Amino acid sequence: MISITEWQKIGVGITGFGAFFILLGVLLYFDSVLLAFGNLLFLTGLTLIIGLRKTFSFFFQRHKFKGTSFFLGGVVVVLLRWPLLGMFLETYGFFSLFRGFFPVAFGFLVNAFNIPFLSELYRRFQGSSSMV
């Protein structure tokens, strides 16, 4: 079993609140205060989960420098109260940073239909294609 420290538990909560505030900021027409608060919480929570050294080594690798600069530049632009431009920059940086993770995630989603509970749920929703 994987042991999780108290700091990592706090980091998961802070990251969740950060994602919530980012979602709320987008839903409220790119409210710059909510987006800035969400970005700061998200980055703080990520640092608490994986540690300061691993966070720096992840973001500042040579082949990820372009994604890091766009992502962190987007955070700075949101903090300067240009939320729409900042979120576009962050989104491009996010996809550039996590480019190697997406095939793993899509592979998991394809194999998720082999999990007993999810496969039964998928079969139930697959049969109900009627809109009425």
Rank of each mutant, 00 (worst) to 15 (best):
M1A: 12
I4P: 01
I4A: 05
W7E: 09
Q8I: 04
Q8R: 07
K9Q: 10
I10K: 08
V12N: 08
V12W: 10
G13P: 00
I14V: 13
T15Y: 13
G16H: 01
F17Q: 10
A19W: 13
F20G: 00
F20W: 11
I22L: 12
I22E: 11
I22F: 01
L23W: 12
L24R: 14
G25F: 01
V26G: 04
L27W: 06
Y29F: 14
S32H: 12
L35Q: 07
L35T: 03
A36V: 08
A36D: 13
G38C: 02
N39L: 10
L40P: 00
L43G: 11
T44C: 06
G45N: 00
L46F: 12
L46A: 10
T47S: 04
T47L: 08
I49N: 02
I49R: 11
I50R: 09
R53I: 05
T55L: 10
F56G: 11
F58P: 02
F59W: 08
F60G: 07
Q61N: 04
Q61P: 05
H63Q: 13
H63C: 02
K64L: 15
T68W: 07
F70G: 00
F71S: 00
L72Q: 12
G73Q: 10
G74P: 02
V75Q: 05
L80M: 11
G86A: 02
M87I: 05
F88A: 15
L89W: 09
Y92P: 00
Y92T: 04
G93K: 09
F95A: 03
S96V: 01
S96N: 09
F98P: 00
R99I: 10
G100R: 11
F102L: 15
P103F: 08
P103E: 03
V104G: 04
A105G: 03
G107R: 09
L109N: 03
L109Q: 07
V110W: 10
A112V: 11
A112P: 01
A112Q: 07
F113W: 14
I115M: 14
E120S: 15
R123P: 01
R124P: 00
G127V: 06
G127M: 07
S128A: 14
S129C: 12
S130F: 15
V132P: 03
V132D: 11
V132C: 12
V132Q: 10
